[in-house]
Amino acid sequence: MTQPHRLFITLTLLALIAVGAVIYQQYLTQGGQVLRVATTTSLYATGLLDALGEAFRKSHPGAVVQFIAVGTGEALRRAEMGDADLVLVHAPALEAEYIAKGVLGEGVIFAYNYFMIVGPSEDPAHIAGKDPVAAVREIYRAGELGYAFFVSRGDESGTHVREMTLWRLAGLEPDGKSWYLETGSGMAETLRVANERRAYTLTDVGTWLKLEKELKELQPLVAEGDILLNIYSAYIVNQNKNNELARLFMEFITSEEGQEIIREFLPMFRPIGQDTIEELRQRWELLKEV
């Protein structure tokens, strides 16, 4: 007759060995200090962060930097929950909100680039070369007439926040319109949707340059305007678990070595220079308000 306890003991032993192996491997990998960085997807998807992380590890042996790539909104939310030591984000208005809440501490600007409006080559809304706010007005008009579509991230990412700013500055509310499509996904997916639907969308220049070749239906139409400046900042989370390492990493990405790595990613990302940093700070203050 089968003894039931023998079955349970076998199963339990098996599980213990398996779980033990996972914990052991975790222990092996996790030696040293761990820094958790919640970051925006555009920085990660372009490969910039892996490059920065590797260089940092070389100069700081024993340090483990873990990147968790989510949108700016989710990164800040996770920081508020206490699950990140450092955040890398690009939405001044949201950043200001979380600074006011006391979630974010000290911060620096470490890179910048531009947003741009891309759309179908034949440009049915005639926005090419226009001012960004005028361009979204034209898209709205063409959308209402049934000539154009606009694809939105719809995920509270830095890009989405900026897009909402553009609509607000234009005094328009596209939400719920049949020509306004919200993907709720990352920049690459959203660009692909725009490409398939031959629609307009707002993108950061980094992701655009990475995918440009396969987005045959789209081309950049509006790339000029102060409102399209995209500023990437790093903040130490007040409620962090590794203040020293967070500070070291923040110092590293603004150091000469870190900026040199960012320079290698030109024109996807631009390093900050002595001459530009003051202006970027002022522009950040302005973007925070709009």
């Binding site: 349970f8 199963l11 599980a15 398996a18 779980v19 996972v22």
Partner: peptide, 12 residues
Amino acid sequence: MISGSATALASV
């Protein structure tokens, strides 16, 4: 490893 140990654990 992760899914295997999850299966073993859940079976218990």
